[in-house]
Amino acid sequence: MRPSHRGALPTTLAALILSVLAGCSGTHHGSAVAPAAPAAAPGSPDRRPADDPATWTLPLMRYLPTDAQARTIGRARETLTRDCARRYGITLTPEPELPPLGPKNVMDWRYGIHDRGLTARRGYQVDDAQQARYDAALRARGKLPRPSPDTSVVVSGTRLPPDVLAAAGPEARKGVVAGKPVPDGGCAGEAQRTLGTATQGVSPFVARLMTASYPRSMEEPDVRRVFARWSGCMRERGFRYAAPMDANDDPAFRPGPRGVTREEIATAVADLDCRAAHRVAEVWHTAETRLQNDVVAREAATLAAERRALDRTLATARRVVEGKS
């Protein structure tokens, strides 16, 4: 996993954004993240440590759940699904969460690498110990027993892959288990309707805006100028790239059996030096903030409605998690 030309968007929140957008990607693999910081009000100064983009915000983030809020909605969805399954005599065991992998939150790698210690060891790759823990947890999860076809019908309804549905019992294939009809979309669908969201609170509209501002920001005149200065700095060091994410996305540096090469580390260290010398991330973030402020003003009514919908979902989710539903 590494930052990419589309802006890093790790889970919990970012993976949800990616699933909503069905095909857009911000990292090479999914990862778990810490809660995102609250967004600054439009037009307000962004007080942040200049060297830690993980602490930065963007105006549209206020219309998305934080990672902590997305986890609350996820826990509520699991609780509702599990309670529903009990009506059919089925006890569901949640899969264990995977450990963190990659960027800390939705902003951490959005504008590229910035951690000098990690870059000097790993170039554009994630921490090796973190990757090892994640891979081990993924292997352990893969060894867990698979649910029976009838259980899959209870959880997800009858819109399953043909081979899974064909393996279910004759009544289950018709959407009936334990003599009771299965809700549309199964217990998971019922949970989504109760919470009022199929995406853990991530609005598809907001997700599209959040993603669209990233490539647009790279076309802003001040960003193009700072990219040109960065490119000149890299050329002086013997590396030819037109823009920062071109180095980051160089196919020669993709994860592979060779591991991290000296060439990758040398390139990444030079990249980081040139970013710092010309304040690339700061200029880029300022431009994207400006673009998003314009969008927030233009779409104020729709965004306010999306925020109200998110707040309703969060209120319901908290009641479920606290056992007050």
Score class of each variant (00 low, 15 high):
Pro255Val: 04
Thr267Gly: 04
Tyr214His: 10
Arg254Trp: 14
Tyr214Asp: 01
Phe227Cys: 06
Gln292Met: 10
Ser231Trp: 07
Pro257Phe: 00
Ala198Trp: 04
Cys187Phe: 11
Glu190Phe: 15
Lys174Ile: 00
Ala242Met: 05
Gly169Cys: 07
Arg224Gln: 14
Arg193Cys: 05
Pro255Gly: 04
Thr199Val: 01
Glu288Asn: 07
Trp284Gln: 03
Ala297Met: 00
Glu220Pro: 00
Gly179Tyr: 05
Ala228Cys: 06
Ile265Val: 15
Ala277Arg: 15
Met210Ile: 09
Arg279Pro: 00
Ala198Asn: 06
Phe239Val: 06
Thr289Leu: 09
Gly196Lys: 05
Lys180Thr: 00
Ala167Met: 08
Arg240Lys: 08
Ala198Asp: 10
Pro170His: 08
Pro181Ile: 09
Met234Asn: 11
Phe253Ile: 09
Gln192Thr: 06
Arg298Glu: 13
Cys233Ala: 05
Val176Gly: 08
Ala277His: 08
Ser203Gln: 02
Arg258Glu: 15
Pro221Asp: 07
Val206Arg: 00
Gly185Tyr: 04
Glu236Pro: 04
Arg224Asp: 06
Thr211His: 12
Ala167Gln: 14
Glu219Gln: 15
Cys233Lys: 02
Gly259Tyr: 11
Thr261Leu: 04
Ala167Asp: 11
Arg298Ser: 11
Ala277Gln: 15
Thr211Ala: 13
Leu165Cys: 04
Val226Thr: 11
Ala247Cys: 14
